[in-house]
């Protein structure tokens, strides 16, 4: 991330300095401003779902779900950390339901738990699964198509499902069976 950020930033910086030096500062200021607007949107999503998930946690609901999923979680992510499995289970559930925004806090929690066990494999696998999108229903896209007056808004569900399945499986297989140094 460091190298990419520095690379793109510097390249853009040089180009801006040549083409339109007066546009430089407004671009940065605008970017910072937009990030807060984005944070407000994200807070809305997180407030709703983390409020709900706190209830699920305190009532023992998510603990029970994690316990049920633990054997599978242990096998795929090679971990016996219950709190991490709980985060992973909730993360995947949110992704599958198409509420991707709500999935992020759970992944961050699971990755923090896995850090305690020094389990880089599980951290990276969870990242890859999320980065290649796992979704049953592309809620946002369907809503967008409906509002644009599509005659068959759900038309894209099947191709999307095939595509997300392919991308996640492909990436996970390459990661798991690739050179060992990728996983540590």
């Amino acid at each position: 991330m460091n190298a990419i950020f520095t690379g793109i930033f510097l390249a853009s910086l040089l180009a801006v300095a040549v083409i339109s030096p007066e546009g430089f500062l407004p671009a940065l200021l605008g970017g910072a401003e937009k990030s807060l607007a984005m944070a407000v949107t994200l807070f809305g999503i997180y407030a709703v779902w983390m409020g709900l998930s706190r209830l699920a946690e305190k009532s023992g609901l998510s603990g029970a779900a994690a316990k049920a999923l633990k054997p599978m979680c242990g096998k795929i992510f090679r971990t016996d950390n219950t709190a991490a499995c709980e985060g992973i289970a909730m993360n995947l559930a949110c992704n599958l339901l198409g509420i991707g925004g709500a999935a992020t806090p759970y992944a961050v929690k699971a990755i923090g738990e896995l850090e305690k066990d020094n389990n880089s494999f599980a951290q990276k696998l969870l990242f890859i699964v999320n980065a290649t999108s796992v979704q049953l229903i592309p809620t946002t896209v369907i809503a967008l198509r409906t509002s644009a007056g599509s005659a068959a808004a759900a038309d894209i569900v099947l191709p999307s499902l095939i595509c997300t399945t392919f991308s996640t499986l492909f990436a996970a297989i390459v990661f798991i069976f690739g050179p060992k140094k990728w996983r540590c």
Partner: peptide
């Protein structure tokens, strides 16, 4: 918890958004 989490994201968000804006303005 959501509020704390959102606040912890803002530095990352701001840096990435600034990069994206700059990338756009630079016509690259």
């Amino acid at each position: 918890e959501a509020l704390k989490f959102t606040l912890s994201l803002i530095p990352c968000l701001a840096a990435i958004f600034m990069m994206c804006e700059l990338f756009e303005v630079s016509t690259l």
